[in-house]
Simulated assay, not measured.
Amino acid sequence: MERLILMGGIFLMLFILERIMPQVGRNIVGKSHDISNLGLGAVNLLIGRYFALFTVYALAKYLENLEVGVMNMTSFDSKFKLILGVILLDCVNYWWHRLLHRVSFLMRFHSVHHTDRLLNVSSALRFHFFEVLMGHLFKLPFILLMGIPVEALLLYDVIFNINVYFHHSNIRINRSLDLLLSKLIVTPYIHRIHHSLKWKESNSNFSSFLILWDKIFGTFHPQGDISTPKYGIPGYTQDKYQHFSYMMKQPFIEEKS
């Protein structure tokens, strides 16, 4: 419960700051934009977290009790295991994100996130629940192999969500500060490039928390001169792609706008 309160508090703070010091005007989307995104977030909270509880966390706890998995069979200090677990989970998320963009079936679900024409903190919740469930399943083999402790899963959940809120936010952030932070973590300017209408830009900057994965695996695209590209996917321009009811069924519909 404390984790949810902390994440909810950060979300609310960013939501307020976006209205005080926005990077981009809200006139490019309708009034229902945030409500639709929040609706998807509520579905994911109800379905995704219960699914994770009985899969990801249950497996991690089971392996911990049996001392199965690489990390459970080492004599590493518990704090080192915690840090290592967070780093490994972030690497797994990087490859999951790349896979979403590489496999057309998965991209059908991930496109719900990328059809957003305005990036703000509510966009961090704009994921189809099937993508969320598949993401949890993707983690299971790595948890089984590495024996990632439950504490690392819990800590990474907080770190991941807070940074996703931050780098999707529509806050006007000082460019120098963004450049400084982006040497370590994903920042708004860095992630806005990933949501660009241009394929070369959207096919880069897959990291969720630590930026080093993009730099190691050759998918890093620096901020450049344009800090706020146009967002979305070419062809998905109709207002229906911003409505909750359509986003829920969008992956199962063939037609484009």
Rank of each mutant, 00 (worst) to 15 (best):
E2W: 02
E2Y: 03
R3M: 05
I5F: 01
I5D: 01
G8R: 00
I16S: 09
E18T: 13
R19C: 09
Q23M: 14
N27I: 02
V29E: 08
G30Q: 04
G30P: 03
K31P: 08
L38S: 07
N44C: 08
G48A: 11
Y57N: 15
L63C: 11
N65P: 00
N65V: 09
M73V: 05
S75D: 13
L84A: 15
G85W: 10
G85R: 09
I87C: 04
L88H: 05
D90W: 06
H97C: 03
R98M: 10
S111F: 03
H114R: 00
T115E: 06
D116G: 01
V132N: 07
L133D: 04
M134D: 00
G135N: 11
K139R: 15
L145I: 14
E151C: 04
E151M: 12
E151G: 05
L153M: 15
L154K: 13
D157I: 05
V158N: 11
F160M: 12
N170P: 14
S176T: 13
L177D: 08
L181N: 03
T187M: 13
R192M: 09
H195T: 00
K198H: 08
K198Y: 06
N205I: 04
N205E: 07
S208M: 07
D214T: 11
K215S: 03
I216W: 04
F217P: 06
F220C: 05
P222W: 08
I226P: 01
T228Y: 06
K230E: 13
G232P: 06
G232M: 04
I233E: 06
P234S: 08
Y236A: 01
Y236L: 01
Y241C: 02
H243P: 00
S245W: 04
K249A: 11
E255N: 14
E255I: 06
K256H: 03
